[in-house]
């Protein structure tokens, strides 16, 4: 059961930031992780600051290739349904579609999924390969950081006391193909055994691949651009990227999968990803 907690719905971002200064205060947007954690007793905040009413967080823009901004109020089904986004950056919708269920995606937000900082977070790999940054507001004003700096460990982020992620900014979208793939235990909703996202720009010869659920944080493979430049053969590229993936990850044994299976599936899924985005 959820323990008694105070609730406050601020009218402005400033008010939200002020409320978040309280000991044990937590922002709540979709709440689909937080409320479950509170019900299970793994999180016991004293104050919930409901940021769903804040206009500053209700931003979304995806204009041409020049970049995408997604505010903290934007839920995952929006990312699936938005036609413009599907056109210019389909990997977001693909990732979102693999998260939980339709009902939960009507509440769950992109930023919530990132702030929860699960190693298996399905939205994170796409953010890594797109080079997304988070915009944070707090008592000391605004700061920005790369997603890879923001997620620091299992369920840990760089958010300081009283801080709040307002939006995600994705820089210019490269030309080329992108995709998200996920290994799970059944076809219905499940947490990822392994998830991978990738984006390949054949003109600029850039290739970004990120693997989730195989280390304490998602792993953005290093040296993939070089691999991409070194070979035009997709099968060879797939094999070499998979080998790189195997060396770069540090999966564990848990109730969902053995480390061995995760490692092998990371390799298989990286290959499949390469074939999808590099052919």
């Amino acid at each position: 059961m959820i323990k008694p907690v105070a609730y406050f719905k601020p009218d402005s971002l400033a008010e939200a930031v002020e409320a978040l200064q309280n000991e044990n205060a937590r922002p709540i947007a979709g709440g689909t992780d937080l409320i479950i954690n509170m019900r299970n007793g793994t999180e016991n905040p004293g104050l919930l600051v409901d940021v769903k009413g804040l206009d500053e967080l209700d931003v979304f823009s995806a204009n041409g290739k020049s970049g995408i901004t997604i505010g903290a109020r934007v839920n995952l089904n929006f990312l699936i349904d938005d036609a413009k986004l599907r056109n210019i950056c389909p990997v977001l919708g693909e990732s979102a579609l693999s998260v939980a269920t339709y009902q939960l995606r009507n509440r769950a937000t992109l930023i919530g999924n990132l702030c929860n900082a699960s190693p298996a977070a399905d939205m994170a790999p796409a953010m890594y390969v797109l080079g997304a940054g988070v915009v944070i507001t707090g008592p000391h004003g605004e700061r920005k950081m790369l997603i890879s700096d923001f997620i620091t460990g299992v369920k840990r982020t760089a958010l300081g006391k009283g801080e709040l992620v307002v939006k995600v900014e994705i820089p210019e979208i490269p030309d080329g193909k992108m995709a998200f793939l996920k290994k799970q235990r059944c076809r219905g909703h499940d947490l990822a055994t392994v998830n991978v996202a990738g984006i390949a720009d054949p003109a600029a010869k850039t290739l970004k691949i990120c693997i989730g659920a195989c280390a304490v944080t998602p792993v953005l493979l290093k040296g993939t651009d070089e691999l991409y430049r070194e070979t035009d053969n997709v099968d060879e590229l797939a094999d070499r990227a998979a080998e790189l993936a195997r060396k770069s990850i540090a999966p564990i044994d848990d109730v969902r999968s053995s480390a061995e299976y995760r490692r092998d599936m990371a390799s298989v899924y990286v290959k499949r990803l390469i074939r999808k985005i590099c052919s």
Partner: peptide, 16 residues
């Protein structure tokens, strides 16, 4: 018991 609950004990869904 390591998987008490529907998160890690998967029963089939309409997709399966």
């Amino acid at each position: 018991f390591l998987n008490a609950g529907l998160v890690d004990y998967k029963i089939l869904t309409a997709k399966d």
